[in-house]
Write a protein that binds this DNA or RNA. Structure first.
Lengths: 136, 136
DNA sequence: GTGCTAATTGCAAATCATTAACATTTAGGA
DNA sequence: TCCTAAATGTTAATGATTTGCAATTAGCAC
């Protein structure tokens, strides 16, 4: 498992450090989009600086290890890029659920617009609504 | 036209003010997701406070007049809710293009997940890539 | 039309997320 | 083991957004 995360870093041309491994661990444990603050709280025992987390997220995003997700929140949320999902987001409590569909129709759409854009690399799909708990 | 925007406000139970009408005007002129700063620049002649724009956007979003859109930018972008589109966003220059498809497949997806969520009110779809200008 | 009140706006300062500068440490190859 | 670029910590800065409070105004009752 640790070998797995090390490989991810090495493959991206990044040095393998305890901080980076720890952050990747958090991602693989929590299968939902998370933000810097969340990671910070999970790693309190390990004395990781919040600034480092921001920097790491930025580096990971640039290398394509993680991707930012729109959850209509104030802070930026990320998920593992390898772990492609679409989302259901509750407008009331902010709860995020993943839905694992990714139909070809979207790919076709992407293709259809490739005349305007040189290349389309990714897409995101989010549904916003109210979850059962919040519905009184 | 002004009657149109007034109706929008009245329908939402909001008072009709010059500032609000001006902001709605900006939205209807620019058919793309815009942020507070952008609106502020368009309204310089009219001495509207930036804080008021933030407040108005928040109010409009709450009332369902506008909707926030994920454009992977630092600031929050909004578009008229009535004006539903999906987007092509250039990762290099940040250019946003609208694409006017909205297939039923997405609606079906929404339905399929209505067991988990009480109700799904909206969805957003964004494609990220590189536009022709930015592709060297 | 006048007056009233809650909603709206402006202004200044605070807050929150994120980034920058710079000094120190460390991973990993020579 | 040594060396260097990359990574991290610390502190301060920045930029977006919010808050508190006083002044203004829309829209209703009279």
């Amino acid at each position: 498992m640790k070998k797995d995360t090390s490989a991810t870093l090495i493959g991206a041309g990044l040095k393998v450090t305890p901080t980076r491994l720890a952050i990747l661990e958090v991602f693989s444990k929590d299968c939902k989009p998370i933000n810097a603050e969340y990671i910070f709280n999970r790693l309190h025992g390990e004395k990781v600086n919040l600034v480092t987390i921001y920097r790491t997220l930025s580096t990971f995003a640039k290398k394509g290890i993680v991707r930012s997700v729109n959850v209509h929140a104030e802070s930026a949320h990320y998920e593992l890029a390898a772990h492609h999902h679409h989302h259901l987001i509750c407008k009331d409590c902010g709860k995020i659920e993943e839905i694992s569909i990714c139909n070809e129709l979207l790919d076709k759409e992407a293709m259809a617009h490739s005349t305007k854009f040189q290349s389309i690399q990714s897409h995101s799909v989010e549904f916003f609504g109210v979850c059962k708990k919040c519905k009184v």
